[in-house]
């Protein structure tokens, strides 16, 4: 079993959930036009992933496994995610209105972000314990934040230079940026073992 530090570094650098597993692409393409929205989305994702995987772990190991209904895992996970996102939204709105103003608008979009479900799924597939799950989910989501931040930064700079061909604007250019970044991140391979 890899150490917690290994898991943390690997999920950010060598096994980046966005750039190696290519997950959570829709929001990266959709909301990476400028850095501030990208940060808002990224931070919300970090929060939601960490919270939901820490809720899903006990549900899986304390309820689903003892009752032999592992087949329902995905169904339960996605409902947990939808429910906790909604709950989180209400709590934020009620108790931390300033934070809600900044990040609340991203929360409903996160339910359909495949990264969230993927983290819960990988935690089961890789048989992590609770500590490892915590580190893994935090690391993965930070890795995703890093990816969307890099993309939006490059996009902002690219806008200053201008002259992206019409058909390539939007999704096309983001894919090329992502491809280049993914190529760069391949250079980390082998640095940390997962």
């Amino acid at each position: 079993m890899p150490s917690t530090l290994n898991i943390f570094l690997a999920t950010i650098l060598t096994h980046n959930i966005a750039l190696t597993y290519i997950l959570g692409m829709c929001p990266i393409i959709g909301v990476s036009k400028n850095i501030s929205t990208a940060v808002g989305m990224g931070v919300s994702v970090v929060f939601v992933i960490t919270v939901t995987s820490l809720i899903n772990w006990p549900i899986y190991h304390l309820i689903l496994v003892p009752t032999g209904s592992e087949v329902l895992a995905l169904l339960v996970f996605i409902l947990t995610i939808a429910a906790s996102v909604q709950l989180l939204e209400m709590l934020l709105e009620k108790f931390l209105p300033t934070l809600y103003m900044a990040f609340g608008i991203f929360l409903p979009l996160i339910t359909v972000n495949c990264t969230v479900l993927a983290v819960s799924l990988f935690m089961v597939l890789r048989e992590y314990n609770l500590t490892q799950t915590a580190v893994f989910s935090l690391g993965s989501s930070l890795g995703w934040l890093l990816a969307i931040l890099l993309v939006s930064g490059i996009r902002e700079k690219l806008n200053l230079v201008g002259d992206v061909p019409r058909g390539l604007q939007g999704a096309g250019i983001v894919m090329i940026i992502l491809g280049t970044l993914a190529l760069g991140f391949m250079g980390f391979s082998g640095m940390v073992d997962l």
Binding site: Y21, G167, L168, M175, G179, A182
Partner: peptide, 26 residues
């Protein structure tokens, strides 16, 4: 992974240029 991006980007470019319908955001 990077190969997928590099293949999809030109396809998107070509089709969108044909469609003349660029500014569709997600």
């Amino acid at each position: 992974a990077p190969g997928g991006f590099f293949v999809l980007a030109p396809i998107v470019w070509a089709v969108r240029s044909l469609q003349q319908d660029v500014d569709v955001e997600i």
